[in-house]
Design a protein around this nucleic acid. Structure first.
Length: 570
RNA sequence: CGGAGCGUGGCGCAGCUUGGUAGCGCACUUGUCUGGGGGACAAGGGGUCGUAGGUUCAAAUCCUAUCGUUCCGACCA
């Protein structure tokens, strides 16, 4: 392709609306343009990348035995009413009426549609298992679309659905999909992690999320340094510390801590570390009017998801008001402590092994120092995992310690069970001649989000750095002042044709622009390999080669250039 | 849904407080020079100032409404 026929639409200025790097670069590099909030047009360059993502996904899904279908984006309300999601889904489901006043929605996902298809098309257990997939536009009326195509209202997704007679069959396909996803993300050339999405409530639905690792990712992921364990930070279990509680060495003393409320302030004031403090949070209990005290180590963070799973705590989690704290503890929020509380107490596991700690005294402006369990107050009977894991915690599977990285969720695989097939009566005739409800799995990949995530993970100050399999073009040819040298034009045209004939995706910059302008454009749009042609090179029979990620270029003999590039692309 | 900000050539913005000739940078067109990391100079084209009302001799500027958009929060996972 020639730039004279393929406008690059790059821009120098960073658009003010783009908050994250990938969004900025996608606009600057001319991949997308915004039409309205959460709606984007893919320009030719961006579409090439999008298609590459699709191609890899499609090819691997087919290898895994998936059958491609294409379902409508516009969906009748009746199917959604059958599963109850017409009511449940909320405003995110874009609803509309047709000219006959019938209800429809723009599909945010296709469980209902595929289940309807399956109940009509699959009659016998002999046709199972079967996996359908499609690559198609989804619509979710996000309250607040942001970050460009990262969270847009309209986006492209690969969604797949499998149907089974038995749980074993579902597990088998789930394993195949896990392997397929691993292959897909490996082909993308991205650093990724499969993350346990539901922390193994036994017998419950198994689910994995696939995250592309990037510092700017929205989700924090905890993964083991030694095993394949990986989980969303909020869901990773914080184990009971292995080391037992040290013996008490200090006597308990009441000390004045005027106007020291937060853990940071108290630590600063007393010159101690936050790990020596116990913070006490008062939340509402499940019973009306009841309060519960939660004890955490000063440097740890309360994990709302975990706390809400405790039966005696109100859902959703609510903190006590200042008045309620005053009544229950006799002090303001900054001075609460475990000593002498009459309300029930739940201690985090790590709190239970603390000794000589500092906590509030339930008197304004006072704390206790040198507090010890069982000597100064009884160890709470209710000890639970209340906190979010931190870097260095033991891995929940017992192997290694946890490292924390940030990730962007780009895929999920999920064992659905019979939620939809039951509601929609999607059954087959089994071996015994009886009707049996099918078991389902579903598997999604955010195609458009992958493009943004790839940029988020791989870029530098000059622009995008595409991995080889996602790059819109493999090679860029930039001739220097071609308009002034007929022999250079000839040589460049010849090289261009040679590369094209070899099946290489090459972008020939035949614009009459200055060298720096070309280089900046090619760096911005992230072409992996750059060939620079000039009269000087012609004299010495060489072409300059520079990788996108390299700082220096090298001269390659003109006669070797095709083989050289082919080797680079292998 | 609550709060806040912003709508001025294609893009990014100034002008608005204190009403009186529509401005800048980038991009675009033409020419000359330049020619290896987003060049210089010159000339040029392009704007009913989001929309609708109102106040005024006069509104981009003040007032009201409305639409769009962005950010924060809530909601949703």
């Amino acid at each position: 392709m020639r730039t004279s026929l393929f406008p690059l639409n790059t821009v120098k200025e960073t658009p003010s609306e783009a908050e994250i790097i990938s969004h900025q670069l996608m606009i600057r590099a001319g991949l997308i343009r915004k039409l309205a909030s959460g709606l984007y047009t893919w320009l030719p360059l961006g579409l090439r990348v999008l298609r590459k993502v699709e191609r890899i996904v499609r090819s691997e899904m087919e290898k895994a035995g998936g059958l491609e279908v294409l379902m409508p984006g516009l969906q009748p309300a009746e199917l959604w009413q059958e599963t109850g999601r017409w009511e449940q889904y909320g405003a995110e489901l874009a609803r509309l009426k047709d000219r006959h006043d019938r209800d429809f929605c723009l599909g945010p996902t296709h469980e209902e549609i595929i289940t309807d298809l399956a109940r009509h098309e699959i009659k016998s257990y002999k046709q199972l298992p079967i996996t359908y997939f499609q690559i198609q536009t989804k619509f979710r009326d996000e309250i607040r679309p942001r970050f460009g195509v990262m969270r847009s209202r309209e986006f492209i997704m690969k969604d797949a659905y499998s149907f089974h007679l038995t749980e074993e069959s579902l597990h088998n396909t789930y394993e195949i999909m896990y392997a397929t996803y691993t292959a897909i993300f490996t082909h993308f050339g991205l650093k990724f992690r499969a993350v346990i999405a539901d922390s193994g409530s036994i017998g419950g639905a198994v689910s994995h999320e696939f995250h592309v690792l990037a510092d700017s990712g929205e989700d924090a992921i905890a993964f083991s340094t030694q095993s394949s364990y990986a989980a969303n930070v909020e869901k990773a279990e914080a184990l009971m510390p292995k080391q037992s509680r040290p013996a008490a060495t200090q006597t308990m003393t009441l000390i004045d801590t005027p106007n020291q409320h937060s853990i940071d302030e108290v630590c600063e004031f007393l010159s101690i570390s936050a790990t020596q403090c116990v913070k006490t949070l008062i939340v509402k209990g499940a019973e009306e009017g009841e309060l519960v005290a939660l004890l955490l180590r000063g440097d740890h963070e309360l994990n709302e998801i975990k706390v809400e799973k405790i039966a005696s705590i109100a859902v959703p989690l609510q903190f006590a008001s200042d008045d309620e704290i005053q009544r229950a503890c006799g002090c303001k929020a900054g001075s609460i402590g475990a000593l002498g509380l009459t309300i029930s107490i739940i201690a985090d596991r790590s709190v239970s092994v603390m000794a000589d700690f500092v906590c509030g005294a339930n008197q304004d402006g006072k704390h206790y120092q040198g507090v010890n369990w069982e000597r100064d107050l009884p160890l709470p009977t209710h000890i639970a995992d209340l906190r979010t894991v931190v870097e260095g915690d033991e891995s929940p599977d017992g192997e290694g310690t946890l490292t924390i990285a940030r990730g962007i969720e780009v895929g999920h695989i999920f064992q659905l069970g019979t939620k939809y097939s039951e509601a929609m009566k999607a059954g087959v005739i089994n071996e015994g001649g009886k009707n049996q409800i099918m078991i389902m799995g579903c598997y999604g990949i955010g195609i458009s989000r992958v493009v943004a995530a790839a940029i988020e993970q791989n870029h530098d100050s000059k622009g995008i750095i595409w991995s080889p399999n996602l790059a819109p073009f493999q090679v860029a040819i930039c001739p220097m002042n071609m308009h002034k040298s007929e022999r250079l034009r000839e040589a460049t045209e010849n090289l261009y044709q040679e590369l094209l004939n070899a099946g290489i995706e090459v972008l020939f910059d035949d614009r009459k622009v200055r060298a720096g302008f070309m280089f900046s454009d090619m760096d911005l749009i992230g072409i992996p390999h750059l060939l620079v042609m000039g009269d000087k090179g012609l004299d010495s029979g060489t072409v300059e080669y520079k990788a996108r990620t390299a700082n220096e270029s090298e001269d390659i003999a003109m006669t070797d250039i095709l083989e050289f590039i082919k080797a680079k692309l292998r």
